[in-house]
């Protein structure tokens, strides 16, 4: 599920969201559950893209929501709740990956292959490794923007807010990420992308 880049919360949705946050702040589990339901797919998907590992993705997602719950008082409503939440989500995932090392953990999971859905796979294992290596080889600042924008459909304003950078920087990093991928993959992927 990649959400449309053009999707923006309506005014009504924002007001409703603020009410939910207020209720959650006052201890309403139901309100927080609604906020969770509205956002968990996107947070989990992004966490999984970044970690490549179901356990870590689950940990990062859980941590994100628990931190949000703890810090609801700090949410001032200047931005959408989802924007604020994604700032926490990205920081949680990046910090977690720095601690655990993203490559080692994912390799462990690749060995058991439990997360694979073979019928959906178009690449042979060698080509998949090449592709994976190319994306993994990107610097963190490029990889994160690439995963958010191109794979998960985040807009540049969303990425800029989540990563604390200007929109122009987000665009420049995406450009660099794509360029590096093109250079890294060279001719090898040509047969798969036609």
């Amino acid at each position: 599920m990649v959400e449309s880049s053009d999707e923006r919360p309506t005014q009504h949705a924002i007001v409703n969201e603020l009410e939910l946050v207020e209720q959650a702040r006052n201890g309403s589990e139901t309100a927080f559950r609604t906020l969770y339901d509205d956002n968990v797919d996107r947070v989990y998907r992004l966490s999984y893209r970044m970690a490549g590992n179901a356990d870590l993705a689950r940990d990062f997602t859980q941590d994100t929501f628990l931190r949000a719950w703890e810090r609801l008082d700090q949410f001032r409503g200047d931005s959408a709740f989802s924007t604020w939440l994604h700032t926490i989500a990205v920081k949680t995932a990046l910090n977690g990956l720095r601690k655990h090392g993203r490559h080692g953990k994912r390799e462990a999971e690749l060995k058991d292959g439990t997360h694979m859905a073979p019928d959906r796979r178009r690449l042979d294992p060698l080509a998949r490794d090449r592709l994976r290596g190319a994306v993994d080889g990107l610097k963190e600042i490029y990889r994160t923007v690439f995963l958010m924008h191109d794979l998960e459909g985040y807009t540049h304003p969303e990425i800029a807010a989540a990563l604390g950078m200007a929109e122009g920087t987000s665009k420049a990093r995406l450009f660099r990420a794509r360029e590096q991928l093109r250079n890294a993959l060279g001719e090898e992927m040509r047969e798969y992308v036609r």
Binding site: V2, R33, Y36, D37, V40, D41, Y44, R45, Y48, R49, M50, A51, G52, A54, A57, R58, T61, Q62, F65, R106, H115, A117, R120, R121, R122, L123, R128, L131, R132, V135, D150, L151, R178, L181, R182, L185, G186, E187, M189, R190, Y192, V193, R194
Partner: peptide, 29 residues
């Protein structure tokens, strides 16, 4: 690989690179 090939490559990456499984919504909750 040229610039024009990038979109299909992105699509391929979306399908192949850390494609997320279904969200374990209730378990995490």
């Amino acid at each position: 690989m040229t610039h024009e090939d990038m979109d299909p490559l992105v699509k391929l990456t979306r399908e192949e690179y850390n494609a997320p499984p279904e969200t374990p919504r209730e378990e995490m909750w």
